[in-house]
């Protein structure tokens, strides 16, 4: 039982990061029906901008850990959101009315471009988040020692998701996003500025992805230029499991994926863990072809 609780907590932390990235995929998909393959690179960018602020510029040392962290959260989310906005302008907006596959290839191209740009700027070596911002202590959870940083990362992910949920469900802009996700044309007829909705989505999604990158850097202490590839693929999987386009679905899918991985590794095999995950994904989709919580779309006839 201790083993299970420990593994469950391991899975929740990873899952929280997956969920944050998955939100970016799912929000963009909901409104634009586009798989933003460059989203994983925005995650990497967040990690490297955090490295720039906290390690290269020594922000935490200069203004104290708490303020340094707060400043880097604001700066990283702002800069990555700006990058996401730029990405949408350059690579996706011109293709808004084209074939969907063209946008997919454009997204793949943008992903390759960003990944290599990060490599050229920061080099191909692994970089260490050497700044120790938090004491390396563990808290007791159900009799299991869980490192403080993991609890904080999970709490931060949960808080961000809650904020997003409130934003989507309790504000007028959130209402517009939901409307545009269901039917862009009808939303436009109702007087919703769909271009603005897309812009908002392309600010929130990247900001969350960038923050996830910062959190991954703080949690694992090691970043490199192609880290977004694997995380992006996993988060995309999570978004699909939850039902892409559905925001709650992405949260559930992310946590579920994290748990699947840790429990798969714990009870079956570490080497086959990712294969198990994909087999479960396929089984879920065979039973529920649009994921656990499908987006609400009327099937067009």
């Amino acid at each position: 039982m201790d083993f299970f609780i420990q593994q469950f907590c391991n899975g929740l932390t990873t899952g929280g990061i997956y969920a944050l990235i998955a939100l970016g995929y799912t929000m963009v998909y909901g409104v634009m029906k586009l798989i933003n393959f460059a989203h994983g690179e925005l995650f990497t960018l967040g990690a490297f901008l955090g490295y720039l602020l906290l390690v290269t510029l020594g922000l935490a040392g200069a203004v104290g850990p708490a303020l340094g962290l707060a400043l880097s959260i604001v700066t990283v989310s702002g800069l990555v959101a700006a990058a996401g906005h730029l990405l949408e302008r350059v690579a996706y907006r011109p293709l808004r009315n084209s074939d969907r596959l063209a946008a997919v290839v454009s997204a793949l191209g943008a992903s390759i471009f960003l990944q290599n740009a990060i490599m050229i700027v920061w080099g191909s070596q692994y970089r260490a988040y050497s700044a120790r911002l938090l004491p390396a202590v563990s808290l007791d959870v159900l009799g299991q020692p869980i490192p403080l940083i993991r609890i904080l990362v999970f709490a931060a992910a949960a808080a961000l998701m809650l904020l997003l949920w409130l934003f989507i469900n309790r504000t007028r802009t959130g209402l517009a996003i939901r409307a545009a996700a269901i039917d862009q044309g009808a939303a436009r007829l109702m007087g919703i500025d769909v271009s603005r909705v897309i812009a908002v989505v392309f600010v929130i999604g990247p900001a969350l992805g960038g923050l996830a990158g910062l959190m991954a850097g703080l949690l694992y202490g090691q970043i490199n230029f192609n880290m977004g590839q694997l995380y992006g693929l996993k988060a995309f999987t999570a978004a699909i499991i939850g039902g892409i386009g559905n925001i709650q679905g992405a949260m559930i899918g992310g946590l579920l994926l994290g748990l699947l991985e840790s429990l798969g590794a714990a009870y079956v095999s570490v080497a086959w863990k990712d294969a198990i995950t994909f087999v479960v994904l396929i089984m879920i989709l065979v039973v529920r072809p649009t994921g656990l919580l499908p987006e609400r779309v009327a099937e067009k006839l």
Partner: peptide, 10 residues
């Protein structure tokens, strides 16, 4: 190559 893909698709 990545940039070229984007441009060609546009």
């Amino acid at each position: 190559f990545g940039a070229a893909l984007v441009v060609m698709m546009i």
